[in-house]
Design a protein around this nucleic acid. Structure first.
Length: 486
RNA sequence: CGGGGCGUGGCUCAGCUUGGUAGAGCGCUUCGUUCGGGACGAAGAGGUCGCACGUUCAAAUCGUGUCGCCCCGACCA
């Protein structure tokens, strides 16, 4: 039938390829993830968006707990005097700190910073709590909001107030601190790839991209469809820098007083933005099942005088719900086609249609969001009593297919380059991740940035010792992915 | 923060040049017919044009300021 070939028309959002920015903003708003608020640069996270955030939180939190971390909560406000103790840190964050200068009608004698990150307040507390090597390590995470006075904002990717988690740990030795930093980096990579289905490059940051006050910063970097990289999680080895500034000392087994080694690491709701851009299509979001607030939505199809499908859907949904699936029944009085489009837009991985034909045959028709409407395999009909058995395979298949598509994109947009001119062209064209042997010199990175606005994303060890820097010809020290970034 | 664009019922926008206190489509409400990829008919409701000040007999329309959003750049999770 010719109508089977008619394109799915999405009125709410523009095509993704034509203008990623416009698509992205519309998708976030129309899928009801966020709303703009009366506060500049601050969005409201709506229930569906919060559902996404909750799934991120659930998965990451479980991983934190499994690696021995505990949750705690620290104050939002930080006295200025505390903030000033770590010079590099202060300097790094100064331009984007928001201040409280008045309480009620009184002007404060000391300004209070609204935390842009919590190293300062947490380090101050650690100084009080840690006395002995027996108190170490301290492994604490906090789920919190932070504020950074941003000049340009976009939902999830950059907002003035955002939700994140920040882990802060203290250790007895440099080795343990580094070990922790890398453990978390791997934890983030695992989460990004196996839960968010977003393939990343993980590695060390260049000195220029390092967190203010850190000895070394590691990150995971994802690639967006427009060829720009998105830093999606960072893990910092702070060495003894913060321990010195905030006086975090302990008596070691050898009876000597030493500064602790601290780390900090964070993932924000920015990762949701990455997930949206990486997986979405012209019909809207495509949420990987593990992150989906709703894994499957039932759409009952009624006829006049025949609304049996509603009861059948409700009963089936209840069974699935008891079995641990996140499902919803859409009983609204809209046309089925209208509902299909809306749930497509909102990215629900599986749609379960049940109409009179299904009711008669005791079947359900499953449609998968990762396939196109014209794909013969988009829909399949299964026996109602086999839903709980079919759904897990289908969901995990969708999860895998979304990851595979994203992975293929990342790989096909990663360019191993030897030639200087080609390197500059690819960087300038926002082609993707440009992989070169690099000298690791700040001047060299600055030059590339000035010429192309690309910077290093992450670095990794060099295989061949004799290689020279593709940019400047100096001896290469590492391999580096260069890209423009968000 | 620099350059550009925009702000009119819930949404998308017209009206602004040549001032005379608002229109369309979609959505919303009610009733009926429909319902397997964004249905149809009928009857309704809803805005004083982001905000402030100014010019004028009169401002959505002109001027100044301000707030917010989008795009490009610089800066940053």
């Amino acid at each position: 039938m010719s109508e089977a070939l008619a394109p799915v028309v999405v009125k709410e959002i523009p095509p993704k390829a034509a203008d990623l920015s416009a698509w992205y903003t519309a998708a976030c708003l129309k899928a009801e993830l966020v709303s703009y608020s009366p506060v500049r640069g601050c969005v409201v996270l709506r229930p569906y968006g919060f559902g996404l955030w909750e799934n991120l939180r659930t998965h990451l939190d479980a991983r934190f707990k499994a690696t021995g971390h505990e949750n705690a909560y620290f104050p939002l406000l930080i006295p200025e005097s505390l903030l000033l103790k770590e010079a590099e840190h202060v300097e790094g964050f100064a331009p984007e700190v928001a201040w409280v200068t008045q309480g009620g009608s009184e002007t404060l004698t000391e300004r209070l910073a609204i935390r842009p990150t919590s190293e300062v307040i947490i380090g101050t507390m650690y100084a009080q709590w840690i006395e002995s090597y027996r108190d170490l390590p301290v492994l604490i995470n906090q789920w919190a909001n932070v504020v950074r006075w941003e000049k340009a904002t976009r939902p999830f990717l950059r907002t003035m107030e955002f939700l994140w988690q920040e882990g802060h740990t203290a250790h007895a030795t440099a080795e343990e601190g580094r070990e922790e930093t890398l453990r978390i980096l791997e934890l983030y990579r695992d989460f990004a790839e196996n839960v968010a289905a977003v393939p990343v490059y993980a590695g060390r940051k260049s000195a220029g991209e390092r967190f203010p006050g850190a000895v070394e910063t590691f990150a995971i970097e994802a690639l967006m469809p427009d060829g720009r990289a998105l830093q999606s999680g960072t893990s910092h080895d702070l060495g003894q820098n913060f321990a010195r500034a905030y006086d975090i000392t302990f008596v070691d087994a050898d009876q000597r007083i030493k500064h602790a080694y601290t780390t900090s690491w964070g993932v924000s709701w920015r990762m949701l933005g990455g997930l949206i851009m990486v997986h979405g299509d012209d019909r809207g979001l495509r949420i990987p099942p593990k992150m989906a607030p709703i894994e499957a939505v039932f759409v009952p199809i009624v006829r006049s005088g025949d609304d049996r499908a509603i009861e059948v859907c409700t009963a089936a949904a209840e069974r699935l719900s008891l079995a641990g699936f996140r499902v919803r029944v859409d009983t609204r009085e809209e046309q089925p086609g209208w509902k299909y489009s809306e749930w497509d837009l909102r990215g629900v991985p599986v749609r379960i249609e049940i109409g009179p034909r299904d009711v008669d045959a005791a079947t359900a028709t499953l449609a998968r969001r990762d396939r196109d409407k014209n794909d013969k395999d988009q829909r399949r009909t299964v026996a109602l009593d086999r839903l709980a058995e079919v759904l897990p395979e289908l969901l995990s298949d969708i999860q895998a297919s979304l990851y595979a598509q994203a992975k293929a994109f990342l790989e096909s947009h990663t360019y191993v380059v030897q030639d200087r001119a080609e390197f500059f062209r690819l960087c300038k064209d926002r082609a993707g991740m440009v992989d070169i042997a690099w000298c690791e010199r700040a001047e060299c990175e600055a030059l590339v940035k000035a010429e192309t606005s690309a910077t290093t994303r992450v670095l990794r060890p060099l295989e061949e010792a004799s290689a020279t820097c593709v940019v400047c010809g100096e001896p290469a020290k590492v391999r580096a992915y260069f890209a423009q970034s968000y």
